[in-house]
Design a protein around this nucleic acid. Structure first.
Lengths: 343, 343
DNA sequence: CTGAAAGCGCTTACAG
DNA sequence: CTGAAAGCGCTTACAG
C-alpha cells in the first residue's frame, strides 16, 4: 500500500504539502499541485481510512441500525439511503438487529430490545461513524436513545419525543384518508375496515385518516371495524365476521397481507373482489399485484424515505451548529388496480 | 471518550498492560487483570476502532458488495451473513452497486459494470476491511476480480474461475431435478418447461436438472420448451404458445413470476392450476403463496448461503495459510402446495 | 507557498 | 509479570 510519505518523497515535497493538496487547501502553488496530483494518480494512492479517521475524527461513514432487514420496508429505505450516500461519498455500515428472528412479533415489548439498540449505538460510537440512521421496522415512539449521545442521529420510519432528534416518516394518516375518499367517490357508503393491532401507531393513524375522510365526505362514522393481526389468516377471520351479515360494499384493509386473507374468504364464498365487494390494501407489496383481481393499494414511498433520511443526517453532520431537528413526512401514492368497483 | 491511557492511569499500570489484558494475552497476573477489567467495565471504555485498525491492520470488518439490494435474493443472503458476523463480532460495511436501477436488466453486458466492481473492491481495500463478500444478483462466472487483490474475497450466489477465490451457490441443477422427479412421480409424463433467458446460467442448470430427471425416470427428452424473460408477462406469452395445442399435463416454470403469468393465462382460459394442468415454480417468493391455488415451488436457501459465505470468509481471514478455495453448493428444498395434481 | 514536529489511540517487539 | 518506546499513516497548528 502506497502512503503519503512515499508520494512526498517521489515529488520531493513535504508530507504536509501532499496532505494539503489532498484536502483541497488553497495554499499550494499550481505547479507543485499538478505534479503531486499526477503522481497520486499514477501510483493509485488512496488515503488510509483508519489513519485519517484517527487523526481527524471524521470517517465519512454513517452507521445504519435496522430493526430487522427482513421486514418488507427495510430494503427500500436502505436502497434510498445508499443511493444518496453514493452521490455524496459516504459509506454505510450496517447493524441488523434481527428482532423478528430473535423475538418474533412482540419484540418491542421486550426489555432486551432497548439494550440491543443502545449497544448498537455504542458500537457505532466506538467505530467513530459520523452519524447514525435508525431504520425502524414500524412506526412508534422510540425512547431508548441515550441522553449522552454525542453524534447526530436520525430516525427513519418512526419518531421520538427526544428533542434534537429528527425523524422521517410517511404521511400515514393522509394516505388512509385519500384511499377512503377514493372509495367514497366510487360510490361506496358502507366501508368496513380491517385494521392492524389496536395499539399500533399505523393502525391509529390510518383509522384517523379513514374517519377524517368519512367526515369530509359527510358520511357517518364507521360501524364495521375489526382489529386484526396484520397477517393473512387474521384478515380471513376478520372478513368472516365482518362481511357475513353486514351490508358493506367495500373493505379497507390496513395492509396487503390481510387483504390477501379477505380474498381467501371471498373466494371461498364464491364472491369476486372488485365486483361483489371492493377491497383496498395498504403497502403495495409485490404480492398485491398477483392477487386476482390485482389489489388497489397504498404505496409507501420507501425509497424517498431513505433518501430524505440520508439527506437529513448529512445535513446535520456537515452543518451541525444551525441544524434544526424536525419531524418529516413523505407523501404516499394510491395504486389503482382492479379490486375497487364503482357503484 | 475514555482512552487506554486513562484506564492505565486509573489503575496505576502501564498502557501496555491494559492493552495486553484487552487482547487476552496470558502474561498478566490475575490480580491486576481483575482490577483493570473492573475499571474498564465501570468507565464503559471501548477501544478506538480507528487506532486499533491503524496499528494492527485488522479491523474486524468485512465489506459486502451487492449487485443490487432490491434483487429478491439479496436480503436473505445478507441476513444470513450478518447473523454469522454477529456471533463472531464482525462488522459489515455495505456497498450497494444498484445495477438494476442504473442499467436495467442488461447490466452485466455493460463495461461500466466491471469498473464499478473494481472500484468497490478498491474502496474496501482503502478502508482496510479484513475481507470482502461479493453478493451477486444472479449466477454467473465473475471475471472482473483484480489479479493483485491482496485481501480475502468470497463470491456468494455466483462463482469464478479465478483460482484461490471461494464461492457459495445453491444446487440449482439438483433442485430442478428434484422438482421434475416429483412431477413425474405424481404421474406427469409430458412436462413443459418455461425457462428463463437462454444464456442465463440458472436456465442452463435448471434445464440440465430437468433433463436428468426425465432420463432417470425413463422418459423421453423434452419437446415442450420455451425460453422467456423471467417476468410475469413473458410467462403468460410462453404459456399461450406452449399450452394451446400441446398435450402437456404440467408446466415447470423456472421462476415464480413466470408461473404467475401462467396462472394469468390459465385463468383467462377458465382452466384451474393443479387440476386441469399442474404448475411448478422456482424461488419461493412471497407472492407464490398468494397465487390461487398456492404455488408449489423450489425454495432457495438464501439465509444458509449467507451463513456459509460468512463462515468461509472468516475462515479464510483467520486461517489464511491453509485455506483452500472451494466451490460450495447449498441444497434447496421443495415446497409442496396446491398447484401440482396427481394423475 | 512550504515544511518540521506533535499527536490521534492503539499494538508490539523488547528489555528487565 | 510489567513497562518504556517506537510506530501505524495521517492532519494540524505553527514557524518561516
Amino acid at each position: 500500500m502506497v502512503t503519503l510519505k512515499e508520494i512526498a518523497e517521489k515529488c520531493s515535497v513535504s508530507i504536509t504539502t501532499v496532505s494539503n493538496i489532498l484536502n483541497g487547501k488553497s495554499n499550494v502553488s499550481l505547479k507543485t499541485k499538478e505534479r503531486v496530483l499526477s503522481v497520486i494518480k499514477e501510483t493509485g494512492y488512496r488515503p488510509n481510512y483508519m489513519a485519517r479517521g484517527l487523526r481527524a475524527s471524521k470517517t465519512n461513514s454513517v452507521g445504519i441500525i435496522i430493526d430487522d432487514l427482513t421486514e418488507f420496508s427495510s430494503t427500500g429505505i436502505i436502497d434510498g439511503i445508499m443511493s444518496y450516500f453514493d452521490e455524496n461519498h459516504y459509506k454505510a455500515i450496517l447493524e441488523n438487529l434481527r428482532f423478528y428472528s430473535k423475538w418474533g412479533n412482540k419484540w418491542y415489548h421486550n426489555k432486551d430490545y432497548e439494550d440491543s439498540v443502545q449497544q448498537a449505538i455504542d458500537e457505532f460510537e466506538a467505530i467513530k461513524v459520523d452519524g447514525i440512521i435508525y431504520v425502524a421496522g414500524h412506526a412508534r415512539c422510540i425512547s431508548c436513545i441515550p441522553d449522552n449521545l454525542n453524534i447526530p442521529l436520525v430516525i427513519s420510519y418512526a419518531f421520538t419525543e427526544k428533542p434534537g432528534i429528527a425523524s422521517v416518516e410517511f404521511d400515514d394518516m393522509q394516505a388512509a384518508c385519500d384511499m377512503t375518499t377514493k372509495l367514497i367517490k366510487d360510490g361506496h357508503k358502507k366501508i368496513a375496515v380491517i385494521a392492524g393491532t389496536k395499539t399500533n401507531i399505523h393502525t391509529q393513524r390510518r383509522l384517523e385518516g379513514y374517519k377524517k375522510a368519512l367526515k369530509e365526505q359527510g358520511l357517518e362514522d364507521c360501524k364495521y371495524l375489526r382489529y386484526a393481526n396484520w397477517d393473512r389468516e387474521s384478515g380471513y377471520e376478520a372478513a368472516k365476521e365482518l362481511l357475513a351479515d353486514s351490508k358493506c360494499t367495500a373493505v379497507f384493509c390496513f395492509n396487503d397481507l390481510m387483504a390477501g386473507g379477505v380474498y381467501d374468504y371471498l373466494n371461498e364464498k364464491g364472491l369476486v373482489p372488485g365486483k361483489d365487494i371492493s377491497v383496498a390494501g395498504y403497502d403495495n407489496r409485490t404480492m398485491s399485484q398477483y392477487l386476482k383481481p390485482a389489489l388497489s393499494t397504498v404505496e409507501i414511498p420507501l425509497y424517498d424515505i431513505g433518501r430524505k433520511s440520508a439527506e437529513v443526517i448529512l445535513n446535520q453532520i456537515t452543518n451541525a451548529e444551525n441544524f434544526k431537528a424536525q419531524q418529516y413526512f413523505v407523501q404516499c401514492g394510491i395504486i389503482e388496480r382492479e379490486s375497487i368497483g364503482k357503484i
